[in-house]
Structures are given as C-alpha cells and as structure tokens.
Design a protein around this nucleic acid. Structure first.
Lengths: 219, 219
DNA sequence: GAATTCATTGAATGAGTAATCGATGAATTC
DNA sequence: GAATTCATCGATTACTCATTCAATGAATTC
C-alpha cells in the first residue's frame, strides 16, 4: 500500500498542475480586466496586478499579450462548446426539446455572464483583435450553427412548415441571439438574462407553432 | 448684379465653412482609422496621417482624442437619424409601408457601410468607450425604438394579432437587426447588405402575416 | 544532498502615445 | 495697408506600454 503510487504519479499539486492553475488565474484576470477597462485599457501591468503576480510571469506563461488574448478566447470558446454539447446528449428527446436546450445553453448564466459578454464584444469590435478571434474561435461558431441547422431541418421535415428554409431560419435566429447578447452588455439593467432567454424562446415558438404552444411574443 | 452679395456674405469658402470641412475630414479619417486598426490601434498620429494634416491640427479642432471620438459618434448618429426621419415622411402611407421604410433605412448602404459598422461595434465593445457612446448617442437609440414601437402598436390595433406585445416585439426585432449588423461586420463576404435586409423583412413578414404576404423565411 | 530544472520577481529598455506650444503665414478686420 | 485673429505645423515633453533579462529560491532529478 505504501509503495504504490509513489513514483509514477507526481505529488498532488505537481508542477504541471500548478502551471495550469496559474494560466487559468491569469486568463480570468484578463477577462475581468477587459470587462472593466476595455481592450484598449487592458495592459499587462493591470492584468498581473489583478492576478496578484508580477508582470514577468504573464510573459513567462503566455510569451506575449496577443497569445494571452488568444488563450482567453480559446478558454471561453471551449467552455461554451462543452456546455451545449453536454446539453445535447440524450438522443431520446424530441427535436423541439433539443432546440430549447440550445437556447437554454446560449443564455446559461455561466456562459453569458456580463464579464464574458464584454470579452466577446471587445474582440468583435476591435479590427486588430478580430484576427485573433477568428484564429482562436472561428469554427466553434460554425459548429454550433450547423448543429442548429440540422435540428431545424429535422423540425421542418417533421411538421412541414411551408416554404421555410432551415439555413435562412438559423441565420436569422442566431442573429437575434447575438443582438440580445449585445443588449445585455449595453443595458444590463434593462435587459436581464432570463428575460432575453424567454424573448428568444417566444420568437422560436412563433416560428414553430406546431412544436411549441407558447403564445407569440406575448408580454 | 455685380454689386449684390459682395459684402454681407463671406467669401465662398469662408473660414467657418473651411473649419467645418476640416472637422468633417478629420472625422472621416477617424472612421477609416478605427475600421482599419481598431479603437486600440487608432492614434492621433495615424488619424492625422490619413487625413493628411499635422497632429497639432486635430487637437486644435477637437481639443482631445476623447472629444474627437465623441464627434465621430455624434456625426454617425445624426446621419442615421436624419435618414430614417426623412423616410418616415409622407403620412398617407400605411403602417406596413412605414415599418418597411424603417428596415430599409437601417440597411441603407450609406448607413451600414462596413467602415461605419466597425465604428459602432468598436464603441459597443470597449468598456472605456461605452461611456462616450452613451453620452453622444444614448437617446437616438431610444428615439428610433419608440417610433418603431408606436408603429407596431398601430399595426396590432389594425389587424389584431392575438397576444402580441408591441414592446416585446420591437425589442426582439431590434435585437435581430443588431445581430445582422454584427454578422455583416464579422463575415462581410458571407453576409451581404441586401441579403440581411431581406432576411430582416422576411422575419417581419412572418410576424405580421396580415400586413405582408411574403412567405415565411423562404430561401 | 548535489546538480539541475523551473517558476517567479521587478527593474531596465526602447518603442510608442496624447497633448503642448512657440513659430509661421494666410485671411480678416478696421 | 497695418493690426489682428485664425489655422496650421512639427518638434518637444512627459508619460505609458510590452517585453526582456539577470537574479533568486523552490521543486525535481539523479
């Protein structure tokens, strides 16, 4: 008993684990910094101050500011994908349920926390940073879009909505989601998460009356 | 003939006219700079280089970088308001026509030119610049929102869409418009202006079948 | 337990940055 | 046409930023 797992495993908090933690800590600090000061106001000095470490350490772990930003986006994108993929498990559920699950994960509290919305739109909005965004995230967007499109194609086939183009519909719905996110970022007081989620669902219910019974855009 | 309009009017390009032109020139240069380099990459040096004037001149006309930014937003907001207000003239037209006119002006080529979209989202996305945005634009957004809401209230009264809340509907539609704008900015190749405008109109036609005959979200 | 690798520090470096201001000449006024 | 106001320039100033690097001590290896 005492001999087992002595050498092969490293100590509980091995160097590599500690390293991963530090990276995460710096990533979180960067998220907070961007949310508070904007992309242009985010400096290595401020990020490291928030994280409570020295400036040198950030460069040690990420080589450069750009790479730190890349890691931030990667982290947020991974988190997002992980959530909606986990919520799409359970193949016994109906297509309507699954679409509802996608909406729910898009408006999940962890995903669209204000500080994270701020990061997304910071990168959307900055011409210089847009490249970083596309490089780091790029196809995660497409992935979710395709999943939704497949689902809607299924729904159209099931209930036969006349003349509805699934891809067109997905693009319109996704645009609405983005717009609601922007509202939450700009006017957090007036646009609350749950209300926006419901708004999104009501629109979908209007588009797919045979799958959802909710009244169309009622208050 | 020769004596008229000698003194009372200043020479054709008076100092004040020239001044206004210079200001406009600097504003346009700033728009281009933000579109090309992002807010964080926009420096007074780059702006004035684009405009072809000295650094000192920009500060002479605008006092500071923040005030220059404020003027840029003010300029874009004025332009936007001027357009949709002019398109809402002609009180003989139906409510449906008027709503369509609002959509058309939102997706007017001059209004949602890429370089201008870039500016809007640059300010949306930057926590520091968001204050400048709210101060400069703020109620232009509300104004348009109220106009749309009034229109939709009218349409609901006319045709009696059961359980439709006008304000809810307006918020959802406006969100969709913002989202389509974001798409045009991020993926200009795939999301063209006219296609997004049509997408927006088709969604509206689906919501108001009694006012518009277009088939719901067809391709 | 000595040698080596690794994580961390913070001062130093050098490349920008916004904003200032005295100088210059053109337009305007009287 | 002299005096004055105005628009313009660009060198200068004082500051901020990302990144580097030698030094330090802890963890790991042998």
């Amino acid at each position: 008993m005492t001999e087992i797992s002595q050498k092969p495993e490293a100590p509980r908090t091995s160097r590599s684990e500690a390293k991963a933690e530090r990276r995460l800590q710096l990533i979180e600090a960067t998220v907070d910094c961007i949310a508070k000061f904007g992309l242009s106001g985010t400096t290595m000095a401020k990020v490291t101050e928030i994280a409570g470490v020295s400036v040198g350490l950030a460069n040690f772990h990420f080589d450069s500011k750009d790479r730190l930003f890349e890691a931030v986006l990667q982290h947020l994108a991974d988190e997002q994908r992980a959530l909606w993929q986990s919520r799409l498990q359970g193949r016994d559920r109906s297509s309507g349920d699954l679409l509802q699950a996608i909406v729910a994960s898009r408006f999940n509290p962890a995903i669209c926390a204000r500080r994270k919305l701020a990061v997304w739109f910071a990168f959307y909005g900055d011409a210089g940073a847009r490249d970083i965004y596309r490089r780091a995230v790029g196809d995660v967007d497409d992935e979710r879009l395709e999943a939704s499109a497949a689902l809607i194609t299924e729904m159209v086939a099931e209930a036969g909505y006349p003349d509805m183009d699934p891809v067109e519909t997905v693009l319109t719905i996704e645009a609405m989601w983005d717009g609601l996110w922007l509202n939450m970022l700009l006017y957090p007081g007036e646009f609350r998460r749950a209300a926006c989620r419901d708004r999104a669902m009501r629109m979908i219910a209007t588009l797919f009356p045979k799958h959802f019974s909710a009244s169309p855009l009622a208050g």
